[in-house]
């Protein structure tokens, strides 16, 4: 348990740091976003909205930095992330609440599949080092070097534009009303095939390479030699002894690579106009909708932290050494 407590404490500190960075950014960087904003939304901003903008961006010169900081925290705890300008006057929290299930479903499922599949291929490639599988490594390298969004563009042009097998944009058949009925869900699944494959193909290479290298390293550990010496079936040695140990660093790596994968996945959503948080971020960026961008950054960070904590729990279950104090 001490292991988990330590990790949880670290995530709390990280969350605090992310929130504070978010608070500081508009106050530290040059430029006056609020004036630009007021100019753009001439007359359409209520005095309330303008006041909250000033609080958000720290141009509220009347109060001290500290009281601004406290107000900022107070608003956060109320779930108040300000008002979005693109979707004016919808609160940012509402915009995020509508889009985040899409992202969680798409990103969560594909990331887990990519990790599991990539790790399995990596186990095999590392175990059969020197065989024909090594010839696949340069190809995987090439795929891991392609930006996610560009692969998405290619996928759209091949499968959606030329072939027409899959839709090029959106999350479900236009005109359907989102709900838990088969028609909607099947449509959503159909629309998610291309973006999901894009994320899968771009991200799997990293897991394959990482796991292969760990397998190669672990294969020369004493306990693997002992397992061979015991005359165990090869499958048992590969999975129960080598892979079982090699996967541990991969899981702690999973947590750390998540931030990177999330970035790539957001871009895939943009390219596919998928109704998730990445697409919302894209519209926010184009409209210079700072409250929306900042809110999304916070939510993504929190989601990544939670995913990290989950990865830690898995690690804890797989490595008895961290369970010591339990």
């Amino acid at each position: 348990m001490r292991f988990l407590l330590r990790r949880a404490l670290f995530y709390l500190v990280t969350a605090w740091a992310a929130i504070t960075i978010n608070f500081m950014l508009p106050r530290m960087l040059p430029g006056d976003p609020v004036q630009a904003m007021i100019a753009r939304f001439q007359g359409r901003l209520s005095t309330d909205a303008i006041a909250s903008l000033y609080v958000l961006f720290g141009l509220d010169t009347e109060s001290s930095m500290l009281s601004q900081y406290l107000t900022y925290w107070g608003n956060l705890f109320k779930g108040d992330l300000g008002l979005s300008f693109t979707y004016f006057p919808t609160p940012v929290s509402e915009v995020i609440a509508q889009s985040i299930p899409w992202t969680l479903a798409l990103m969560g499922v594909t990331t887990v599949i990519s990790f599991v599949l990539g790790t399995m291929i990596g186990v095999y490639a590392g175990w059969k080092r020197g065989s024909w599988i090594d010839a696949l490594l340069p190809i995987t390298t090439f795929f891991s070097a392609i930006p996610y969004f560009w692969l998405g563009l290619i996928a759209i042009s091949v499968f959606a534009v030329s072939w027409g097998a899959f839709p090029a944009a959106g999350g479900y058949e236009p005109g359907l009303i989102p709900g838990f009925d088969w028609e909607f869900i099947s449509s959503a699944l159909y629309y998610s095939v291309l973006p999901a494959l894009t994320v899968l193909i771009s991200s799997i290479a990293g897991w394959i390479l990482g796991m292969r290298n760990m397998m190669v390293t672990v294969s020369s550990e004493d306990y693997v030699t002992v397992a061979h010496a015991k005359g165990l079936p090869e499958k048992r040695v590969m999975l129960g002894y080598a892979a079982r140990n090699a996967v541990l660093p991969s899981i702690s790596g999973f947590a750390l690579s998540l931030g990177f994968i999330v970035g790539g996945t957001l871009l895939v959503e943009m390219v596919f106009s998928y109704p998730g948080i990445g697409y919302v971020l894209f519209t926010g960026v184009n409209a210079k909708d700072y409250p929306l961008m900042q809110g999304i950054f916070l939510i993504i960070t929190m989601a990544v932290l939670v995913a990290n904590l989950l990865a830690d729990v898995v690690y804890l279950m797989l490595d008895p050494r961290t369970r010591k104090a339990a």
Binding site: L25, A255, L256, G259, F260, L266, M293, Q294, L305
Partner: peptide, 12 residues
């Protein structure tokens, strides 16, 4: 390492 870099870079 843990904070997602790309969204942060985009915002900054």
């Amino acid at each position: 390492l843990v904070v997602p870099a790309l969204p942060l870079i985009i915002i900054v």
